[in-house]
């Protein structure tokens, strides 16, 4: 078995008496899309925060590319090559689409302390940003203010900003959230092609997308992983059938 790119080893996070994540161990292997599903309140958002550095775990470890990053902050993990998208778009709404993508390109360059030359006239930054926008199909609206984008386009821009980092792993928090069926289908096709570039840890509610994309699946209920495996294995798991997928699944 190849070494995982990203792994959590028994990560636990408690808020008072509530264990939002309780000894969660997951692995993201090269070339795969690993979906994490679970009902609302199962601890998916907390898990993402623990993986990306927004929260520090009470116990357990997070390793990324063979290094223990448990003590690293968000910036350090991003610089190590972790590309994240947010469930609720976190974009600079006053800025243009291109400026948002250039921000990612600046992060990829590793610093933004240049004060004289305009960022948008820097060919290296601009090319990297435009290449990412072209891949998600936003090149035509590069000069538009982000606030004027449709919801679906904002979701695409979220992904484009992560792409500019050329990360070693993606962590995507409900990339299909709020998208219509057509948008979801397009995003599904796009993510399908992306796994060859870097593996994706995909937290998603859209079951069609999950079943279409996931190589492996982990089911999170009340902060615990109750099952991990291929689609067929997880579907056959009696605990999953009872707790989550329901009798008709």
């Amino acid at each position: 078995m190849t070494d995982p790119v990203l792994a959590t080893d028994g990560v636990t996070k408690r808020f008072g008496a509530l264990a939002a994540c309780d000894g969660v161990s997951l692995e993201l292997r090269p070339g795969e899309i690993h979906a994490v599903i679970g009902p609302n309140g199962a601890g998916k958002s907390t898990l993402i925060q623990l993986i990306c550095g927004g929260l520090a775990p009470d116990a357990g470890r997070v390793t990324f590319r063979g290094r223990d990053v448990t003590a690293s902050n968000t910036q350090a993990r991003a610089r190590a090559g972790l590309g994240r998208t947010f469930q609720v778009s976190a974009l600079a709404m006053e800025d243009t689409v291109l400026q948002n993508a250039v921000l990612g390109a600046l992060g990829a360059r590793g610093g933004a302390f240049r004060v004289w030359r305009p960022a948008l006239r820097d060919p290296a930054l601009r090319d990297r940003a435009m290449a990412a926008l072209e891949r998600v199909g936003l090149a035509d609206v590069a000069a538009v203010r982000t606030a004027e984008l449709s919801h679906g386009q904002r979701r695409q821009l979220e992904v484009a900003v992560a792409l500019t980092l050329e990360p070693h792993a993606f962590v995507m928090d409900e990339p299909m959230a709020g998208m219509g069926p057509e948008g979801s289908a397009r995003m599904t096709r796009f993510l399908d092609g992306l796994r060859g570039q870097a593996p994706i840890l995909l937290v998603e509610h859209d079951m069609d997308a999950v079943f279409a994309l996931a190589d492996r699946l982990s089911v999170l209920v009340y902060g615990r992983v109750i099952a991990t495996g291929s689609l067929a294995e997880v579907r056959a798991d009696p605990a999953v059938r009872e707790a989550y997928l329901g009798e008709d699944a």
Binding site: T74, Q75, A76, A78, A90, A92, L103, G107, A108
Partner: peptide, 10 residues
């Protein structure tokens, strides 16, 4: 959006 800036590594 400070979270976004941190997420790209700045």
């Amino acid at each position: 959006v400070p979270t976004r800036v941190a997420t790209v590594g700045l």
